[in-house]
Design a protein around this nucleic acid. Structure first.
Lengths: 203, 203
DNA sequence: CGTTATATACACCGATCTGTTTGCTTACGG
DNA sequence: CCGTAAGCAAACAGATCGGTGTATATAACG
């Protein structure tokens, strides 16, 4: 990504203009919101002239879309790839991200842009579906009876915790984690290391 | 839709201007978002001159706050007051509101305004706390072991369903209802009318 | 009738936002 | 060295926004 070949010459002078813009977007869009962050301020924070910014991105909409697409993988991985945890622990570890999350940027973007057809809204949907899918995969790995359902349920808990944290200004992820524990124990026939070693009869 | 204005000059005087403004706010703020709805458009929709609007409300911020305060009771009541349902059914009935909810306006406002100190954000917090409290009361009435916790959990489910519905453009309330059923059955020692008529184990 | 309170229509202000244009600078690469 | 092109700073355009000022018209009340 460091070598952004942009011409027949493969020049990479001023290396990182695009990256600085996206980096500033990550910070400002999250801290101040998308609509309240003007391109002037953003370019100043990125130490990039507006002219340059608009040469790298067709417009703010495209920048917002790229901003959402950026940390797509960074959030997805890091939790699901932890092989040192049991599948059940891995499912619960998703809810242990208190300090890094002011609010899920995808929810914020969907609300702020207010247009389901906006590219960024599409990315938000894709991301949410991807998370649910990964959760479902982890649930299947953990031996859940209905992994798809459990994945969707856990995804809803994450979004609920994010939204509630935002509105109430108080961390709601512990509550979500408690619910998740109940759901997981309820969905997995033989949950290990649990306070409910009672066997459950499937309906 | 009204016969308030008759002729170029004849108008129904006084009463109604404020209500028309708030009514238009309800519609436009929800449909288009708060930030994307200008006062010009809003006043036109309310059939009210801008001057009049600013005589009724000190500014848009105050209007937004009042807009949130308005249907505060209408949402809270109507579900909790249904005595024809058992406490457990009442708790679950909260999740049966698919068509009326494009998105919880409180979450939307908190995201759009992006300022926890904004009066509207305060109202949003108060409302969310009130809902959780009513849910907790209903949970206590239903005989939950820890009503406060169950109330908070159900509130989180509502917010999660609302946020997820918005982002994914698909109704997420059935999923939330399924989780709620699990939580309720898990929290209430003897759940009636359930597929789990197992006797409770006293702690 | 006249006064007053409430509306209205409409122009206007300053701020801000997205996006563009105009020179000018500077770092390479041949 | 010189050319090319990326980049910069800053002014500018056009639109929209929240909010006001002004002059006018009408209904209610005395």
């Amino acid at each position: 990504m460091t070598e952004l070949v942009k011409g027949p010459k493969g020049r990479r002078r001023g290396r990182g203009a695009r990256e600085r813009i996206l980096s500033a977007s990550q910070q400002l869009f999250r801290e101040q919101g998308i609509n309240r962050t003007g391109m002037d301020l953003l370019c100043a924070a990125a130490q990039v002239s507006k002219r340059t910014a608009y040469q790298h991105f067709a417009g703010k909409d495209e920048l917002v879309a790229e901003y959402l697409r950026e940390f797509d993988p960074s959030v997805l991985s890091g939790v699901f790839d932890r092989t040192d945890l049991t599948p059940r622990e891995r499912l619960l570890a998703v809810f242990d991200i208190p300090p890094t999350t002011p609010l899920c940027p995808y929810i914020a973007a969907a609300v702020e842009l207010h247009d389901p057809e906006h590219p960024a809204s599409q990315y938000a949907r894709d991301y949410k579906k991807a998370v649910a899918a990964r959760l479902a995969a982890a649930a299947r790995e953990a031996g859940a009876a209905d992994p798809e359902q459990l994945g969707e349920q856990l995804a809803l808990l994450i979004d609920g915790a994010a939204a509630r944290t935002r509105v109430l200004n108080a961390d709601a992820f512990p509550t979500a984690a408690a619910i998740a524990a109940v759901l997981i124990d309820n969905a997995i026939p033989a949950a290990a290391g649990d306070d409910r070693p009672r066997e459950e009869a499937s309906s």
